[in-house]
């Protein structure tokens, strides 16, 4: 889908996985450096990136780390922005359970045990997602492409 000169919006594909990982992490950290998942599961950033890669490669849909639920903006063959959105509970399972199932699968048991102590805090700050509603989660635009309405284009595409 060609929206504006030089910018193309398309669904994410396998070759976008590294950029989607970057999107998730940049969206997660915002202007800071802290990745909450690293703190919650006692892992470092490379470990989190590795886990995200494995999860995205599984191609399970309708949750935060689903490759198929990302759209990518491309300029001259280079990915410059991406965002993820899904329909909550579309397949009869909540995105929260899908996400923790994914993390449980690819993290060690000790990481899941470590998370247990923070579970009540995670519960307090977690978003209550209503089944049947569209969930917009991670969005990231490469710095030099900001201010060009690419975010709006992605969401509207």
């Amino acid at each position: 889908m060609e929206i504006q000169t030089g910018i193309q919006i398309r669904n994410a594909v396998d070759s976008d996985i590294e950029f989607i990982i970057e999107t998730i992490i940049r969206a997660e950290t915002g202007n800071g450096n802290s990745i909450s998942y690293c703190k919650l599961f006692n892992i470092n950033e490379p470990e989190f990136r590795s886990v995200l890669k494995k999860i995205l490669e599984e191609k399970i849909c309708n949750f935060e780390f689903s490759l198929a639920d990302f759209k990518v903006a491309v300029s001259n063959g280079t990915s410059v922005a991406a965002y993820g959105a899904w329909l909550e509970g579309k397949e009869g399972i909540s995105s929260g359970i899908l996400k923790i199932s994914a993390l449980k699968t690819f993290l060690g048991k000790e990481n899941i045990a470590y998370y247990k102590q923070y579970a009540p805090v995670a519960d307090e700050i977690s978003i209550r997602r209503q089944p049947g509603t569209i969930q917009f989660e991670s969005i990231y635009i490469v710095e030099e492409f900001r201010g060009k309405n690419i975010g709006k284009m992605l969401v509207q595409a």
Binding site: I97, K99, I100, K116, A119
Partner: peptide, 11 residues
């Protein structure tokens, strides 16, 4: 039975 208890139940 929710996303907080699910990993513990499955494990």
């Amino acid at each position: 039975w929710d996303s907080l208890t699910h990993p513990e139940l499955i494990t």
